[in-house]
């Protein structure tokens, strides 16, 4: 349905045909010439028309009202469509609009734009006229569409039914496009945090001195420590308890590094049970047990072994290490974690 002063070309050709018949009926050349010139004016001067139309006449409050803005102008003319804002009037809002679509037809250009309006009032509502600017070879011209009358109905209330609760606002699903900036931001932040954490850990690790026992082979480290213990001459100066404490600590740490048994957290009996048959010769295990038991006496029962025992204990531990050391071909890289 159209509410316009639109000049339709089909109708126009009908008019032309009628005019021509009239002219030739009168066969007055002067009049005919005048009428032909009058008829041709719109074609020669480039006709411009603007319409605004809706598909229907009845709408409900809050509905989108699609308004088709149409302009026809000569192809060498420039047409500017109205700059639509959020609302047209206090009761009419612009929901959205499409870009202008151009179709060439002969020497004319037809421009279409679909504008969705929302009316927040009821009754007979007059949609306003739309203004278009046409630049015809530097000459600005304004064309306007006709206003449109629509009927906006309110929500029908059925009073016979119960009052229903207010409807929740519609939930608009989030689009990936909306999430994308946050997603990128989060990833960037996480990367920065990871980078900082990595930098701090690396710096801490570099600054932390690595214990020599993790760098050297267990037997090398243990023998080095035993030599140091011997040089300290502890039992010779009466520090027997300290001597046995260090001796057993070295032996236990060696077992821990060599056999991966948590020897420092085990008692002598538990350690002996953990060292199963396949690990070493039973004679070596027996000798080690005797040193550890002796150390327990010294450490916990104030026993004072004589110098032969002290020397013997050192010799046994050295022998144990020497006979149980890891051969080159058995070696596997050790880490601090191990």
């Amino acid at each position: 349905m159209s509410f316009t002063v639109k000049l339709r070309f089909e109708k126009r050709w009908q008019h032309v045909y009628c005019y021509l018949r009239l002219i030739f009926k009168f066969s007055n050349f002067q009049i005919a010439t005048f009428l032909i010139c009058f008829l041709l004016i719109p074609f020669t001067s480039g006709a411009q028309t603007a319409t605004a139309s809706t598909k229907e006449k009845e709408y409900q409050i809050g509905d989108w009202i699609p308004v088709d803005l149409f302009v026809s102008a000569a192809s060498n003319n420039q047409v500017a469509f109205p700059n639509l804002k959020d609302s047209i009037s206090p009761i009419i809002e612009v929901a959205n609009y499409n870009p202008v679509d151009t179709v060439k037809k002969g020497g004319q250009n037809e421009y279409h734009q679909l504008v969705n309006l929302i009316v927040f009032d009821t009754g007979q509502i007059m949609l306003p006229r739309f203004q278009f600017l046409v630049n015809s070879n530097g000459k600005l011209d304004t064309i306007v569409s006709e206003s449109i009358l629509v009927h906006v109905a309110g929500v029908k209330i059925d009073t016979t039914k119960d009052i229903k609760p207010i409807k929740e606002p519609l939930k608009i699903p989030l689009t990936f496009k909306e999430i994308l900036p946050f997603l990128i931001g989060t990833i960037i932040l996480a990367l920065i945090a990871a980078l900082i954490a990595w930098y701090i850990i690396e710096r801490k690790r570099k600054n932390q001195p690595v214990d020599e026992k993790y760098l050297l082979p267990p037997h090398v480290w243990a023998l080095k420590e035993l030599d140091k213990l011997q040089r300290d001459k502890l039992w010779q100066t009466g520090a027997v308890k300290n001597y046995y404490s260090r001796l057993t600590d070295i032996a236990r740490t060696y077992i821990e590094l060599r056999y991966h048994i948590s020897a420092m957290e085990r008692t002598t009996d538990e350690l002996m049970s953990a060292m199963h048959k396949g690990m070493m010769k039973q004679s070596l295990k027996k000798d080690l047990n005797e040193v550890l038991v002796m150390s327990d006496f010294v450490k916990f029962a104030k026993a004072q072994p004589d110098f032969i025992e002290n020397e013997n204990s050192m010799r046994i531990i050295k022998e144990f290490i020497d006979k149980t050391k890891q051969l080159e071909e058995e070696k596997k890289p050790l880490t601090q974690k191990d």
Binding site: A303, P305, N312
Partner: peptide
């Protein structure tokens, strides 16, 4: 290995174990 038996070990004087 020539170890003394625990009961043959010498203990410190302060607390006679």
């Amino acid at each position: 290995v020539l170890f003394l038996q625990p009961n043959k070990l010498n203990f410190m004087e302060s607390i006679d174990i």
